[in-house]
C-alpha cells in the first residue's frame, strides 16, 4: 500500500466497487495502518479518517465480525471517536446490536445523518441485518405476534399490529402463515446453506482417510 492510495477518492472507489462485503473488508483492511499513522499528525485529515474508520467498521458488521468491530472502536484514535458524529453513531449502533435492541438498530441506521459516502454501505447493512434477523426469528419463534415480528424486522410495529396488510403480506410471501383467530404469525424456518454442508462433507472425508491411513 502506498500513502498516495489513501484518499477520499480511493475510499469512495473502494466502497462502490467492492463486489462483496468480504472484498470490501479485504480492500480496507491494509489501510488501517496508514490511517493509524495519519491520526498522529497535527494536520490530520479528519474527514478522511472519519469516513475510513466508519466504512471499515461497517465492513466488519457486514462480515459478521461483531467482536472485531468492537475492538476496532478501541483502536480508533479515541479523541476522534469522541468528537466525530459518524463514529459516535457507529458506537451507538454497536451498542444496540450488542444488546439485541433491534428497533434501535434500525432507527440509528435510518435516521442518523450519515455522510453521502457512507450511505450505500449503511443501506447494505440495513438489508443485511434485516435478512439475518429474519433467519433468526424464523428459527427461534414458533409463533409470534405481528407487532413483535415487525419490531424485529424494522417494519412499523403499530401499523403491523393494526393489520397493515402490506407488511404482513411481505412475511406471508416468505412462507410465514397467519392464524386469523389468534392473530399470530407462524414463521417458516429458512433452510441452512447447502454449500457449507457439502464442503464439510469433503473435509470430513479427508479426515477419515487420514485416520484410515494411520490404522496400519
Amino acid at each position: 500500500m502506498e500513502a498516495s492510495d489513501f484518499s477520499q477518492a480511493q475510499l469512495a472507489a473502494a466502497i462502490s466497487s467492492a463486489a462483496t462485503p468480504s472484498k470490501l473488508y479485504d480492500t480496507l483492511s491494509p489501510y488501517e495502518e496508514e490511517a493509524y499513522l495519519l491520526s498522529f499528525q497535527e494536520d490530520r485529515p479528519v474527514e478522511l479518517l472519519s469516513h475510513f474508520y466508519a466504512a471499515y467498521f461497517f465492513s466488519h458488521l457486514l462480515t459478521d465480525q461483531i467482536y472485531e468491530a468492537r475492538f476496532l472502536t478501541k483502536r480508533m484514535p479515541q479523541d476522534l471517536l469522541h468528537t466525530d458524529n459518524s463514529l459516535q453513531n457507529c458506537v451507538t449502533l454497536l451498542r444496540a446490536i450488542w444488546q439485541h435492541k433491534h428497533e434501535s438498530v434500525y432507527k440509528i441506521l435510518r435516521e442518523s445523518p450519515w455522510p453521502d459516502l457512507l450511505k450505500p454501505i449503511v443501506q447494505s447493512y440495513d438489508t443485511y441485518f434485516q435478512d439475518k434477523t429474519l433467519r433468526e426469528v424464523s428459527r427461534v419463534y414458533e409463533a409470534i405476534r405481528p407487532a413483535a415480528a415487525a419490531s424485529y424486522l424494522g417494519l412499523d410495529p403499530e401499523s403491523t399490529a393494526r393489520g397493515d396488510t402490506a407488511a404482513i403480506e411481505k412475511l406471508i410471501a416468505l412462507g410465514w402463515t397467519r392464524d386469523e383467530q389468534s392473530g399470530l404469525l407462524y414463521p417458516k424456518p429458512i433452510a441452512d446453506d447447502s454449500q457449507k454442508d457439502a464442503r464439510s462433507y469433503t473435509d470430513l472425508s479427508q479426515i477419515m482417510a487420514l485416520i484410515g491411513s494411520h490404522r496400519g
Partner: peptide, 13 residues
C-alpha cells in the same frame, strides 16, 4: 437467536 441456547419461543395470543 445468537445460537447460545437451544430454545424456541411461542407467543400465546
Amino acid at each position: 437467536m445468537s445460537g447460545v441456547l437451544e430454545a424456541r419461543l411461542l407467543h400465546l395470543r
